[in-house]
Design a binder for these strands. Structure first.
Lengths: 193, 193
DNA sequence: TCCCTTCTCCCCAATATTGGGGATTTTTTC
DNA sequence: GAAAAAATCCCCAATATTGGGGAGAAGGGA
């Protein structure tokens, strides 16, 4: 009721079964879907995957009581544009819907904290040594990661073959490697490119 | 001024140099620090790391104009509790500060969208072209991804150098590439290893 | 001013990789 | 039981990469 009466939001419908929602989308073409996870027959995450497959541009905002990492993780991997904890204050839904509609994402504070924590645990140990590469070196390394040969890199960066050679020698020294494969792997896992 | 005049927020100070802020924290013991990235002498991310080391319970909210993945990534890995794009509307800062103080995290919509995208790209495997590699080929490719040379692969798999050569020739043909770097990049993005 | 870094380019020689032919022996599959 | 696939090995030659030097120009900072 609150959403339907909000300026700028048109409520196309509300459904207790996601399969009905999918059916209704054929006629209403909504911009944003507010999706509960716990529903009969199929979960909101499965429904979201179906929606994303049929209408890739539709934004889906998950709303649920679940705050555990597993649900958050699955929702994000399935392409959720936001994750809102069920909240008695209807204004947060309005804000979330508007932000998502504008191309952003909305995460409830506790969810955002968990996402950041998951993020950190993935990468924080992957960057123990901080390596400073110059602009050109990063560019050359970027080309290497694309699988380009010295000749192609020279062409792409508009520098001589021998200069590419020099840069790569410096990169290898800085990364403590001595072959392109090693450099690429290291670059990817250290997120240097 | 807006923050200082907001109920529930006490403004302990504002500094154009993070080193002064660190000094001031000794006396004021703030709950939340709102930190710019671009500052003279040291960056806000470095300052945040120093703060987190000295006062692990202090929440740090990054506020900046940078929206690129690199800055976002570094800030998160360094332990940021939030990331707010500079915004003329001071109320978003109040909201962010309150959410962070309460133990949550706050991300501006565009930042949240980028974080979710990074998250997805890490864990969702896209497998558009299906390539059949034999057991041995997968093993050899795995060695290549570790940065090993033909000689090392031969040693590791306990086969002759020439056999490694043969397998790699087959791998290149199956992946439609003709160099180790390309094969590695393709292997990683196709999640073949 | 001098030093340091970055970016640029060159030479040479050793090593590694790639691509083209083969060939043999196990497995697996039909 | 035979064909197909996988795995093993070899030769040769062309090409690419790597590592060792050195050197000049431009720009920033002490």
């Amino acid at each position: 009721m609150f959403l339907a009466s909000t300026d700028g939001i048109w409520m196309a419908g509300a459904f207790s079964d996601a399969r009905n929602a999918l059916w209704a989308m054929k006629t209403h073409h909504p911009d944003v879907v507010l999706m509960d996870i716990q529903m009969p027959h199929i979960t909101g995450i499965e429904a979201m995957q179906d929606i994303k497959k049929l209408y890739p541009n539709v934004k889906v905002l998950i709303q649920t009581v679940y705050e555990d990492e597993d649900h958050i993780f699955k929702a994000i991997c399935a392409g959720a544009n936001g994750y809102v904890i069920k909240n008695p204050n209807p204004e947060v839904y309005v804000q979330a819907i508007q932000e998502v509609e504008a191309g952003g994402s909305h995460l409830s504070p506790n969810i955002a904290a968990k996402v950041l924590a998951m993020f950190q645990s993935q990468f924080v140990q992957a960057q123990p040594t901080f390596v400073e590469l110059t602009q050109r070196e990063k560019q050359v390394l970027g080309c290497m990661v694309k699988g380009m040969s010295y000749k192609m890199i020279a062409d792409s960066c508009d520098i001589k073959f021998s200069t590419v050679h020099s840069h790569i020698k410096n990169i290898y020294e800085k990364l403590h490697v001595n072959s392109a494969p090693e450099a690429i792997v290291k670059a990817l896992e250290m997120r240097l490119v």
